[in-house]
Design a protein around this nucleic acid. Structure first.
Lengths: 261, 261
DNA sequence: CGCGAACTTGAGGCGTGTCAACCCCTGTGG
DNA sequence: CCACAGGGGTTGACACGCCTCAAGTTCGCG
């Protein structure tokens, strides 16, 4: 139940220098002046840790002592209810923060699982708090990341609460493409790191529905998908579907009411 | 598009003292030592503002300059998509923070609407940042609140993604009862501040479904509801439904797969 | 070369959305 | 005081989108 058993495992580097990391423009130190950046070198990141594919970085109930910045690979986060049901709530890629679910209660409330062999930068929360006094910009950036997560989750709630399955899948693919592009990868040729089941769980759908919609999109010429190799060929078409502008047979409004006044 | 037009409206008090507010044990200053508490008096809260029922405290696109702590009344927050569809993403009661959706982009991304005549404490974000240097505990409490919101939203995603309508309604009622109780109100006799439509939107359901489930719960003796006057008579029964333990005819697992390994 | 996991595809059922009719309550103006 | 309008809520009939179940295929890997 405690993370201490993990904390010394797979540590591959100690006291890492952010200024030497190619990810720093999109990671926690984004926007720092170079003086501040070198100032946090060897101080913000306590260590790097390896997490093998399928392994948990932390799990619900673990004591919260540090945040993690994804360096290589990617992760999924999962909440689970008492009765065993669970749901994927997010997909984290390199440069993104993991573990903020533990800030409130000082225990992690969810699981974080590596979708491929991955490495993370370990950031001890207490140490970061002290660094803030010396580098206020670091704190502002941290708040920006927390705020971004909050907004992202609200959009996910909109998706889960009032979108059709096709719109959800289109939204997922567009978000994925955009985030890949931001990291210098192709926005059209993507290797999916999640199974159909995991994608379905993230979108509140079953794996069969995801599979069917992939096939449908393929026959409509929007994309090509073969197992986990995905190629988006009509991004505008996906965006049209995402925005609910697809030609539905007598387009029903689908809970378009509410939420306004 | 700018909040400046609001900022001087309905201001009913300037420079409020948190130590004199009965809400401080559950609000932002929770857990502060009394020396710290008096130290932030007249400095954390710049003003109190009135918001009439149905009015927006802020709307998507407004410039983000301050957070708001609900003092009296309650609010709903709503995201909306380009196509006009929208969704209620949360219900905020007294002592809770509003506006953190603007931290990342310095613009509010959602709307906040008063569900009844309400008053909020205006907390200028820049000024709070300065206060943190003098009162670190205030900052920690702020992080705790952000972290709590993040966890709360993940649970809402679990609800929206993998629960039956009856389970969602039960979860909503239990959450509501618990939060009312925390504020010194009855956990069983509750005046609903949201319409069926708003509740439905929050839960990813239609108003008709909410109404039907209220009726069903009533005939099952779990509660009594007449318009917005609600009385919970069997909390344990609601909890059983929420946990998916209700006697479904040949209980289907409903996407119970996924999210685990 | 064969096994299991992941994926695809089809047929059918079910949960909940949609549409519509009706009731109740409240406020308004004659 | 009543007539009326309008918004919120209830209830029923029906439709439909997605889940469930099942069979078959492909892929990855020993």
């Amino acid at each position: 139940m405690d993370t201490s058993v993990h904390s010394h495992l797979h540590v591959v580097a100690n006291r890492v220098a952010c200024s030497a990391c190619s990810l720093h423009p999109i990671c926690l130190p984004a926007g720092l002046r170079s003086a501040d950046l070198t100032h946090i070198d060897h101080r913000l990141v306590a260590a790097r840790r390896k997490v093998a594919r399928g392994e948990k970085l932390f799990r619900a109930g673990d004591r919260f002592v540090s945040l993690y910045a994804v360096w290589t690979g990617c992760f999924k986060t999962c909440v689970s209810a008492r009765d065993g049901r669970g749901q994927v709530t997010g997909l984290q890629m390199c440069g993104e923060l993991l573990g903020n679910d533990g800030i409130a209660s000082r225990r992690h409330e969810i699981d974080a699982v590596a979708l491929e062999d991955a490495q993370v930068c370990v950031i001890h929360y207490d140490e970061m708090e002290e660094l803030w006094r010396e580098v206020p910009a670091l704190q502002q950036q941290f708040h920006r990341l927390l705020g971004r997560d909050i907004v992202r989750q609200q959009l996910q709630m909109l998706l889960l609460g009032s979108m059709y399955a096709e719109e959800r899948v289109a939204a997922f693919l567009l978000d994925l493409a955009q985030r890949m592009h931001l990291r210098g990868y192709s926005a059209s040729t993507i290797l999916l790191r999640m199974s159909r089941e995991e994608i379905g769980s993230l979108l509140g759908l079953t794996l069969e529905t995801v599979s069917r919609i992939f096939s449908k999109f393929q026959t409509e010429g929007l994309l090509t998908v073969r197992n986990r190799q995905l190629a988006i060929s009509d991004e505008a078409g996906l965006r049209r579907i995402h925005d609910g502008l697809a030609e539905r047979v007598s387009a029903p409004p689908r809970v378009a009411r509410a939420a306004s006044a």
